[in-house]
Nucleic acid binder design. Sequence first.
DNA 1: CCGTAACAGTTGAACTTTCAACAATCCTGC
DNA 2: GCAGGATTGTTGAAAGTTCAACTGTTACGG
Lengths: 164, 164
Amino acid sequence: MPEDVAWLTDDEQRAWRAFLEATQLLFHRLDRELQQDAGLSQAEYEILVRLSEMPGLSLRMGELANQTLFSRSRLSHAVARLEAAGWVRRHSCVTDGRGTEAVLLDKGKALLDKAARAHVAAVRRYFFDQLSKSDVARIERIADAVREPLRDDSGAGRVVCEDV
Amino acid sequence: MPEDVAWLTDDEQRAWRAFLEATQLLFHRLDRELQQDAGLSQAEYEILVRLSEMPGLSLRMGELANQTLFSRSRLSHAVARLEAAGWVRRHSCVTDGRGTEAVLLDKGKALLDKAARAHVAAVRRYFFDQLSKSDVARIERIADAVREPLRDDSGAGRVVCEDV
DNA sequence: CCGTAACAGTTGAACTTTCAACAATCCTGC
DNA sequence: GCAGGATTGTTGAAAGTTCAACTGTTACGG
């Protein structure tokens, strides 16, 4: 391991590895339970949730992609599967001929309700049960700080200096 | 959304979503930069790192799977690719005829050194630069608390009560 | 020893995600 | 209005992951 770039301190090293392992384990576990309880992947669940929160239970594909942080392609494939399963329907957008709207169907809403119960319980059990009130606040603050710089320039490769 | 199971409070809801989004954005970004800088996926990088930390630069497949949290199958495929690329070699274990040892080759070590420089810089830029000293300590503590219950019974489906 | 169970790892098929190319529509300036 | 460019979304193939079945090896009980 080279030493000439700013390496991580021991504290940082331990924190980073613990963080990686914890998130990995947590997401794997939540995924598996969601799969067992409702036959949904985290990705599918996320899509259904976002739709369910919209008035009209519908959303343009692009906006849905933004909210879920999926690529357009990934979302297209995923929604195609949800549509095949009868949980979602797509129809082309009235106001913009290029667009497509995805709509959550009753069958999908029912499944989501069932899935959400189990999923929230799991999130509580494996995550919030281990956390104090101040941990929760701290996590929100840290997460906000981390995501803010990453949020916008999501397609940029390490901008160094690029103007005039 | 049903209300009869312990739902999340508003604080928890916000923290959870921020956490999900931050981790997603962070991992995507690190993945992409690793890919651009060294042509490695996070998974491949992880494998090379673990091998590089062993005396002899080698590890049994099973132990490597444990450390990386990969399934045996995933690891098999991944190491097969690394082997095809000439970064790793496999040979069957001397002391246990069933086993296989993966060994990091010079070419792999060299690649890893290069990759590590860029990767660590990225981890610092996108993660630690946003964190205070006390954030780092808190993260380690929380991560430990979260992973500990998940660590062992990694194959269990929500044990309710199972004895006598 | 021998038969059986447990273990270590690999394999191929099914599925998901990514990547690049594409079709269709909208917008803009002339 | 219409050419050129940007935007929206889909598609098919390649790459990666998961799942279940399989091979070969070791450990154990009789």
